[in-house]
């Protein structure tokens, strides 16, 4: 019986790939994300940019021309270069903080869902507590206290988003725990660790994966917002920082659309790509789970 259950999972991957390719949303999301990841990895090699390289007075806030495809910013720097360099930060922060959030949220969620003891209750209460506190004020306060280095930001975003995952994972674990096959396996004498890893985790995984994608989208938005509000890492380019300086230097009233539109559009596109992937995965994975 165990073998056949694992067989189903394996066959599932092939079938999954097939369905994925045919899902328009999934493909669109994957393509856009792929573009951004490529730019993040190779962008600076192909199109180098130095944040400290200021232009001369005449270079400030120039509209797009042949030498600067997206114009210049308030310090005379090339907007396009900044944009490409910023891709790396946005993705890095988004993905790393999501990693922290997902690992923490999943581990705590499975524990709280599977066990019924004091620790489980404490985890639940802490989760619920953090879910009540509004996220932006909390993030702002934490960053203001801890400092604005990129690692702090990753930490803060990760720390404020794990409760959401934990709650979902816990609910899913609870429902899996009630399924008959768990009872059977426990009766045979399987130990808890084995159950958790071999049976609960694979069943929780699809949900976690789809949720990860949506959390990533939110993490990217969070980083952008934090940077915009002045709590970003000033030593690195990021789309949020670009928008921060754009706002501070009055780009909007000056009509310097090339400065504040591109970073925003990039954020929207990247977040949309994650959202598409998330919804598509949900669509693909959920009905399957239900059918089983």
């Amino acid at each position: 019986m165990k073998n056949s259950e694992h067989e189903i999972v394996y066959k599932g991957y092939k079938e999954f790939f097939n369905i994925f390719i045919h899902n328009k949303m999934a493909v669109a999301g994957a393509v856009i994300l792929g573009v951004f990841i490529t730019v993040a990895l190779m962008g600076s090699l192909v199109y180098p940019f130095d944040l400290q390289e200021f232009g001369t007075a005449g270079d400030v806030m120039n509209p797009p021309d042949r030498s600067h495809l997206l114009g210049t910013d308030d310090m005379g720097r090339d907007v396009l270069g900044n944009l490409i360099a910023g891709t790396r930060v946005s993705l890095l922060v988004g993905l790393l903080s999501t990693l922290i959030s997902m690992i923490l949220g999943t581990v705590l969620g499975i524990y709280a869902g599977y066990y019924d003891n004091i620790i489980s209750t404490i985890i639940m209460q802490v989760t619920n507590f953090f879910l009540v506190i509004p996220w932006l004020p909390l993030m702002l306060v934490l960053t203001a206290i801890l400092g604005t280095s990129i690692w702090n930001i990753i930490f803060v975003i990760g720390m404020t988003s794990w409760p959401g995952t934990a709650r979902i994972v816990r609910a899913q674990t609870l429902s899996i725990r009630e399924r008959p096959f768990i009872e059977r396996i426990t009766a045979i004498g399987a130990d808890t660790g084995h159950i958790m890893v071999k049976h609960i985790l694979p069943n929780v995984f699809p949900l976690v994966f789809a949720n990860t994608i949506l959390v990533s989208a939110e993490a990217i938005l969070s980083e952008t917002t934090l940077s915009f509000l002045g709590l970003g890492d000033v030593s690195r380019s990021s789309w949020g920082m670009m928008l921060h300086y754009a706002f501070e230097s009055g780009a909007a009233s000056l009509g310097a659309y090339w400065y504040f539109l591109p970073p925003g559009i990039c954020v929207v596109l990247l977040v949309l790509s994650f959202t598409f992937l998330g919804y598509a995965l949900d669509e693909i994975l959920n009905p399957k789970l239900k059918r089983r």
Binding site: L221, T225, L229, F247, A252, L261, V267, V271, T275
Partner: peptide
């Protein structure tokens, strides 16, 4: 719904200011 969720709120604000305040001059900045 999807697109409006993907836009940072402050960015929407900046875009609105540009369109309605600076260009169209309907609303104050």
């Amino acid at each position: 719904s999807l697109i409006s969720y993907a836009m940072p709120t402050f960015w929407i604000g900046i875009v609105f200011v540009t369109i309605f305040s600076v260009n169209l001059r309907i609303f104050p900045t």
